[in-house]
């Protein structure tokens, strides 16, 4: 029997928010804060974030996903994780 772990948008955002806040020493991060445009993170951190998402959620950021817009904010990163998790489960 295959067991699928349900991931909610709120759970994913909470996990990613904690990771980002701890990594770049932010006091807070809103769901729609633009990480890159605001200069909150460096390009090095973008790679750390993609690595964290792959390892935490067991999904692969493949060639077609290599668009920084997928990781621009908590809203977009969570949507990406949920979309890839659904694709993996189906």
């Amino acid at each position: 029997m295959t067991t699928y772990h349900f991931r909610s948008d709120a759970d994913v955002k909470d996990t990613l928010r904690q990771f980002i806040i701890r990594s770049i020493n932010l006091p807070e991060l809103a769901d729609d804060d633009d990480l890159f445009e605001s200069g909150l993170v460096t390009s090095l951190f973008a790679i750390q974030l993609m690595t964290f998402i792959e390892k935490t959620y067991g999904i692969e950021v493949d060639s077609d996903d290599l668009d920084i817009d997928n990781f621009r904010s908590l809203n977009s990163a969570s949507a990406f994780v949920l979309k890839k998790s659904t694709a993996n489960a189906s």
């Binding site: 973008a46 790679i47 290599l66």
Partner: peptide, 11 residues
């Protein structure tokens, strides 16, 4: 391997 794979997302 990770850098080469992810770098196109940044540039």
């Amino acid at each position: 391997m990770r850098n080469v794979r992810f770098a196109p997302a940044i540039s």
